[in-house]
Design a protein around this nucleic acid. Structure first.
Lengths: 342, 342
DNA sequence: GAATCATTTGAAAGCGCTTTGGTTAACACC
DNA sequence: GGTGTTAACCAAAGCGCTTTCAAATGATTC
């Protein structure tokens, strides 16, 4: 069933039917009702492509997820982020277009999406400290929003980010308050901005308290379980091992925990752990009492907010780039305890 | 830059330019080269919507992920599945459209996607034992493929699935061979077909060997970490606790492991664990030696194959529904040992 | 009763592409 | 020279919608 057929069925012009369906005022209430009923009855839905062609808008938002060509990892936090965003899109009649792109092709993909007119806006993830995608998108004149921030370069773009520096600074202070000084940092890939910021927060807290930072207690890599395991296992074998770990994700924290237990120590007694917790739906940090003491911020919530801001910017082009800084909560779990006296 | 402008620039008609770009034979080699060069130079990309309107195809595949209205969980295995599928789509010029839908709206969403012509085909996930989506999609005349199978109802539809029954049967036999008889099943939600099949495999192996199955050693729920923890903790507190766990996912297995360690026992010594391993990229089952003995099948691979089969079916409508049964591998890790003698 | 106005409707153009059904020119053949 | 054939190109219709501009109708005003 298309508009023409529907109009013929009703004995009306396409114009009138289109107007009735789209809520324009120049239609008598009687015919509007008649049209809506008929549309319902025949289950009429306007063809997306035709509508888009006529209006110049595609009613779709792109999400580009870049996988490094080498590692081919897909971060599961995307699943939750996208769930949050998808909800907002659905509510506003937008579709979500997903592109999985190897990082050497990203520039081409953006240009194509713009030139082909596939999408009205785009959300990008995990920006690097100095991310070239941002100037590229600025120049492309395609509304976009960054999940995260990029420290260097222009700051005149839309983003939604967590206050990562503050989160890890507080976490570090908490460990210091417990008497820990040999604190290890099992970070994400520090080429990515958020990991860099977390490191900054860690270092800043240590410096403020005048505690020496041992470079051999800092690791940085993709936030897999194995990364946590390997890093912790390695450091626990030191002559003077760390007494606490600051970890970048619950997944990695599970690896750290595995190494701790393998070493015969007990987490939350001899060894303390604080992790960043994205509140992943399949990876809740325990049920009642959190397993890990954690800096928590829901990535699903971030997805929802990101989508809302982007749609807002698309609706009001004069609005300028929207930005939102979320604060992580420090929740106390069973993984932290005072530093052992030795 | 659109086709008209490009054609004017070249002093050719839109017809000829379109033909040159799409590889039709009625164009001289000289002009084809000229056209391609110009297109390259102006970075011309045909407008997706216009092309779709003219051809009647949208060059997009929909993925519908349903979240139960109650739990709002987003299974991270989708991230990997989608990564696999996305690769195939990109290679073939298709876009991927993602819908996150609460389960009470699914039927409407399918009808809409079909009526609006947004997509050329659809992939659905996690079918129930008796899944109503399948007859609905059959009736809608929209090419579709199911990731998983639905035991009841017509079997005349396209699917890609793992031989779940066989996988868990083998895993159970392996535990029985090690002398375990008190084997607990920490399964996924058994309303979903794959979980049902795994249970069948488990029961079939137990029955064949004449080992009694204790109903209180079987749990079924969403495959979260917490589900594993709570189930295992509960069962380990029994007067006669299980000596082995058969678990539905690595994530859940981490919960089981947490409970085991909390109980003061050691996994791979007093307690054995076998898990199903989807080979999630952020959740590799250990590095060299697997942490868990596991039945492994890559969900990313399943995504790739699913996308390939669906595109094939779209390209050749006469082909009939494609189906592919993948076998899981039984890999031996550090989590299994002979049953303790008591 | 004529002029004005608001209300409601419709014809047709246009969005950017593909594709049908030509047309033209060059060439070969008898 | 006339007839076919082929290669290369183009004009225009059509995909299903929105939107501009015009027209018809009935109500209102003087």
């Amino acid at each position: 069933m298309n508009l023409k057929e529907l109009a013929e069925n009703l004995g009306l012009s396409q114009t009138t039917v289109s107007r009735a369906l789209n809520g324009y005022p120049e239609v008598s209430e009687a015919t509007r009702v008649r049209v809506l009923q008929a549309a319902e009855q025949y289950n009429y839905r306007p063809n997306t492509r035709a509508k888009g062609l006529a209006t110049g808008r595609s009613m779709a938002i792109g999400h580009v997820i870049s996988t490094s060509t080498k590692t081919e990892l897909v971060n599961p936090i995307f699943a939750d982020f996208i769930a949050g965003a998808g909800e907002t899109y659905a509510k506003n009649g937008y579709d979500m277009l997903l592109s999985i792109v190897s990082d050497d092709e990203e520039a081409r993909v953006y240009r194509d999406l713009k030139a082909k007119g596939t999408i009205d806006g785009i959300i990008i993830h995990a920006p690097k400290v100095n991310d070239l995608r941002i100037p590229l998108l600025q120049q492309l004149d395609l509304p976009f929003l960054v999940h995260g921030r990029s420290s260097r370069g222009s700051s005149d773009y839309a983003w939604v980010d967590v206050n990562n520096e503050q989160a890890f600074q507080r976490a570090t202070e908490f460990l210091l308050d417990l008497g820990h000084t040999r604190i290890a940092l099992v970070n994400g890939d520090e080429n990515i901005d958020f990991a860099k910021k977390r490191r900054d927060g860690f270092l800043s807290a240590m410096k403020t308290r005048g505690v020496d930072v041992r470079p051999d207690l800092m690791r940085s890599d993709d936030m897999t379980e194995v990364h946590g395991y390997v890093s912790a296992k390695d450091m626990l074998a030191f002559d003077v091992p760390p007494t606490a770990f600051l970890v970048a994700s619950t997944i990695t924290a599970y690896g750290v925990r595995r190494a701790i237990e393998e070493s015969g120590k007990v987490m939350g007694r001899e060894i303390s752990v604080i992790t960043y917790d994205d509140a992943l739906s399949y990876f809740r940090n325990g049920n009642e009492v959190p397993v890990f003491t954690a800096t928590r911020s829901s990535v699903q919530e971030a997805g929802r907010i990101s989508a809302e801001l982007l749609l807002e910017m698309i609706a009001n082009p004069g609005l300028g780039p929207q930005q939102r800084l979320l604060e992580a909560q420090l929740v106390i779990g069973k993984s932290t305890a005072p530093a052992p006296k030795d």
